[in-house]
């Protein structure tokens, strides 16, 4: 017994065990990596600002004839790039008579905050899924008895002019090197593998 203690004591004093593996402290990830913010914030009440003045859509469009040609990119809206399949005309979705409104296929007005009623005319199966809560994200409560479910609308993820969901930067990958000495061991073993 005494011998065991003596050997242990010597081992601790001489410290044959070496340093415990040192922990790598990973940087704290940015809050944006788990934000619940929708992919985009749609303009439900569009106001056009230019040269310090702000205009409603109809301020200009009431005097402009609606164009029946394909959208030209040097017009008043150079930021709008239309890549929505075969829909090359503004008036496919926007009402030609009232530019503060959208249009459905039967010619009825659709308000900007009801834009899904325009989308559903072509995207029936997706709309059905969205209505059932299977396409697009939900937030807050799954149990509607406890609280409301917030269902994101089409335009909170998709830009109606370029509906393809944008590519995004991935959040940080998992770190496998949690310990410095472990990492060194790994590297030396890899080196010895390489030398063999």
């Amino acid at each position: 017994m005494a011998v065991v203690f003596l050997v242990l004591a010597i081992s601790f004093i001489v410290d044959i065990w070496g340093e415990p593996p040192k922990r790598v402290i990973h940087p704290t990830v940015d809050q944006a990596n788990f934000s619940q913010k929708p992919a985009r914030t749609p303009a439900l009440n569009p106001i056009y600002v230019k040269d310090g003045y702000s205009y409603r859509c109809n301020d200009c469009h009431s005097v402009l004839e609606p164009s029946d040609v394909q959208k030209s990119y040097i017009s008043a809206h150079p930021d709008v790039i239309l890549e929505h399949g075969a829909n090359n005309y503004c008036t496919t979705c926007h009402s030609p008579d009232n530019r503060e409104r959208l249009l459905d296929i039967n010619g009825y007005d659709v308000a900007f905050d009801q834009s899904h009623k325009s989308c559903l005319q072509c995207h029936g199966p997706i709309y059905r899924d969205w209505e059932a809560g299977v396409h697009g994200r939900m937030n807050d409560y799954w149990d509607t008895e406890r609280g409301p479910t917030r269902k994101l609308t089409c335009v909170e993820c998709h830009n109606p002019h370029q509906p393809k969901f944008p590519d995004m930067q991935p959040s940080p990958a998992p770190n496998i090197n949690n310990y410095i000495s472990f990492l060194n061991q790994l590297m030396t073993s890899e080196e010895s593998h390489a030398s063999r």
Partner: peptide
């Protein structure tokens, strides 16, 4: 408590359904 899981609420594409 009736809420949705955290992974679902952060999913930007709405791939998760619970």
């Amino acid at each position: 408590e009736g809420k949705l899981p955290a992974c679902l609420e952060a999913c930007p594409t709405g791939a998760r359904i619970f």
